[in-house]
Design a protein around this nucleic acid. Structure first.
Length: 577
RNA sequence: CGGGGCGUAGCGCAGCCUGGCUAGCGCGCAGCGUUCGGGACGCUGAGGCCGGAGGUUCAAAUCCUCUCGCCCCGACCA
């Protein structure tokens, strides 16, 4: 490709509404541009990268036995109603009506559709397992699109689904997918962490997230440098060591006036006590029942954990009226002392607190010198708070957990019969009995990979692509375009590489050298061949690697050979694990 | 949905508070010339429903009301 013919609108200035580096660089390097909030055009070079990521993903899914198909993005509502997700997905789903006012949605994921495909086509245990995947555009009406393509409303995803007759088969496929995912990310030049995660609205059992560590990421994960435990904040646990002594020499309970002091922050200032001296009491409503949850004042309740403990999806903070009715006191003055008739779920730590402060269930009053056992009781203790940096690892019980930020690129789930049961997707087993499929599902954010790679691999001048997904491998650049000797030599090299099947661009634009150098670095072609004076005079061209910034001079005749070798070596470096 | 901010040329911005001639600057774009190893320079030129609607006024980019869009923080999130 000649650059003079390429649509590559590079930007010299920073786009005003891009915050993240990857977002800025994708816009500046002319890979994409915005059509509406969270909706982007992928321009030629950006789309080349996307296609390369897709191809790598495709190869890995095929290699583990996946079969590619394509399902419609436009889905009839009935299918989603069968599983209850027409309601459950709420406003995150783009909905529309056809001319007959039938309800449709734009698919945000395809469990319903694939399960329908399965129930119509797979009738016998003899056809199991079956692994199907697609690479397709997904739609989600995000409450707040951000960070360019990382959280977009329309994006490309690879989603794979597996059908099984037993748990063991699912486990095997899950394990294969796990490996295939590691391969895929590695081959795209990414370093990922695998973390335990929460299935959220996907339902089902075990699941893992594949996350790239990145300070700008919106996922929080905890990892143990000792034993390798890794979990997303939703599920991250911590090891609790009960204090040996149960005896306490607590002071007598006292009631203090705290006018209009409702929040932990206010209390800290007002009573001159540390946040960790307070017992925070939050009233929830779960499936119509009220309950109280206790955590230390400096902790946060983890509602994902709480939902698991309660085995419910329907969890709401109680209203002020509910609180008043249950505790007798207004919002902001709740405490565990004297609450009767509801379940009180407490974080483990509460039992170790001495002479704590808590709401008196009475307007403008708090209790001090509260001690568990003496002054209040709880129904059950759990790990119900968010893990924090420095918590002890729940797995090895020895090392402190580290808290990190990351971007989620892939997620694999063991769905079990979550969808097949609701949708009556059954097959006949060896005995002729009807059984619902046991299913798994496996997603990769294709477009998100591109942004994340840039986030992980760039410098002040621009993007640094790994060879495997770079839009082109080589840029051939005559320094002075209207120097005939340079141009003809550069063209010759370009033609030679091109006919050898190498992905090469010739920067034949009549632009000043500085402009071409800047664009080369910004877009980030891995290999740059510069043809300047020295090349013409000594028949030696400059070869520069974008990643290392190393420059060397090679004989004109050896260009093809060298370039071939470098490309092969670079791709080899990030082959499968 | 709560809080904050922004919509003026393809991009980045000034002008608005305190209304007033032809709406400006830098980049980019087109033409000519000089340049040419890290985003050159000179001259010439094209390009604007000042987000939209309504209102106030002799007069609105500027003031008022409504509305649409966009960004950030939070809530939310396969």
């Amino acid at each position: 490709m000649k650059m003079s013919n390429l649509l590559l609108p590079t930007l010299k200035e920073l786009p005003a509404d891009a915050e993240l580096v990857s977002h800025q660089l994708m816009l500046r390097a002319g890979l994409m541009n915005k059509l509406a909030s969270g909706i982007y055009n992928y321009l030629p070079l950006g789309y080349r990268v996307i296609k390369k990521v897709e191809d790598i993903t495709r190869e890995e899914m095929d290699a583990m036995g996946g079969q590619e198909l394509l399902m419609p993005a436009l889905n009839p509502a009935e299918l989603w109603m069968e599983t209850g997700r027409w309601e459950e997905m709420g406003e995150n789903m783009f909905r529309l009506k056809d001319r007959h006012s039938r309800d449709f949605c734009l698919g945000m994921t395809h469990e319903e559709v694939i399960t329908d495909v399965g129930r119509r086509t797979i009738k016998s245990y003899k056809n199991l397992p079956t692994i199907l995947y697609q690479i397709q555009t997904k739609f989600r009406d995000e409450p707040r699109p951000r960070a360019g393509i990382i959280r977009a409303r329309e994006f490309i995803m690879k989603d794979m689904y597996s059908f099984h007759s037993d748990k063991k088969s699912l486990d095997e496929t899950y394990e294969k997918a796990y490996q295939a995912y590691l391969n895929t990310f590695k081959r795209c030049g990414l370093k990922t962490e695998v973390v335990l995660a929460d299935p959220g609205p996907m339902g089902g059992g075990e699941c893992h997230e594949f996350t790239v560590l990145c300070d700008e990421g919106e996922d929080t994960i905890f990892t143990c440098p000792g034993c390798g435990y890794a979990a997303s904040a939703d599920v991250a646990d911590y090891h609790y060591d009960k204090k040996a002594s149960t005896a306490f020499d607590g002071k007598p309970v006292d009631k203090v006036s705290t006018p209009a002091v409702k929040t932990i922050k206010d209390l800290t200032d007002f009573l001159k006590r540390k946040p960790s001296d307070f017992i925070k009491t939050i009233i929830y409503e779960a499936d119509g029942n009220l309950l109280a949850v206790l955590v230390r004042g400096d902790r946060d309740i983890n509602e994902t954990k709480l939902k698991r403990i309660l085995k419910t999806k329907n969890l709401l903070m109680a209203t002020e009226e509910q609180i008043l009715k249950l505790t007798g006191g207004p919002l902001g003055f709740s405490g565990p002392v004297g609450i009767d008739g509801v379940r009180i779920i407490s974080d483990f730590e509460i039992q170790d607190m001495k002479d704590a402060v808590t709401g008196a269930n009475e307007k403008d009053m708090h209790l001090i010198n509260i001690n568990y056992g003496r002054d209040f009781k709880v129904s059950e203790f759990y790990s119900v708070r968010n893990a924090v940096d420095g918590d002890i690892c729940p797995q090895c019980k020895a090392t402190a957990l580290g808290m990190k930020r990351g971007i989620e690129l892939g997620h694999i789930f063991k769905l079990g019969t979550r969808y097949s049961a609701d949708m009556n997707a059954i097959y006949l087993d060896e005995t002729g009995a009807e059984k619902p499929f046991i299913m798994g599902c496996y997603g990769i954010g294709i477009t998100r990979i591109v942004a994340t790679l840039i986030e992980q691999s760039h410098d002040k001048d621009g993007i640094i692509w790994p060879m495997s997904i770079a839009p082109y491998h080589v840029l051939v650049m005559p320094v002075i375009s209207n120097d005939e000797k340079q141009m003809s030599m550069a063209s010759a090299i370009y033609e030679e590489l091109k006919s050898a099947g190498i992905e090469v661009i010739l920067d034949d634009r009549d632009a000043r050298p500085g402009v071409k150098f800047k664009d080369a670095d910004l877009v980030g072609f891995p290999i740059r061949i510069t043809v300047g004076d020295k090349a013409v005079k000594e028949l030696k061209v400059e070869l520069r690697m974008r990643a290392e910034g190393e420059t060397s001079y090679i004989e004109r005749e050896k260009v093809l050979e060298s370039v071939k070798k470098i490309i092969a070596d670079e791709i080899e470096k990030i082959q499968r694990v």
